[in-house]
């Protein structure tokens, strides 16, 4: 049962990571990256590393995502 979940999580990680690098719209890429960060947090939980999971959810997905979206917004405003 848990191996099925692990495989599904592995596929989701690879898919979101790959789409994040290949999708044509930048805002979608950033949102996919945030989703990727949250999936990483799940992977850390599966690896019995709740400390890293907590940090990844708060920093990797939350703070990095906010920074990237803010930069995207600022660059877009300047272009407009």
């Amino acid at each position: 049962m848990s191996i099925a979940f692990d495989l599904l999580l592995a596929l989701a990680l690879l898919w979101s990571g790959g789409r994040c690098l290949s999708v044509d719209r930048l805002d979608r890429a950033i949102v996919l990256f945030i989703a990727f960060g949250l999936l990483m947090a799940l992977a850390w939980a599966r690896l019995a590393a709740p400390d890293i999971g907590l940090a990844e959810a708060a920093i990797g997905a939350g703070l990095t995502g906010a920074l990237l979206l803010d930069a995207y917004g600022a660059l877009k405003r300047r272009k407009a």
Partner: peptide, 10 residues
């Protein structure tokens, strides 16, 4: 460059 930062994080 923004996409490159994403790739760096991945």
């Amino acid at each position: 460059l923004l996409r490159r930062i994403l790739a760096f994080n991945v």
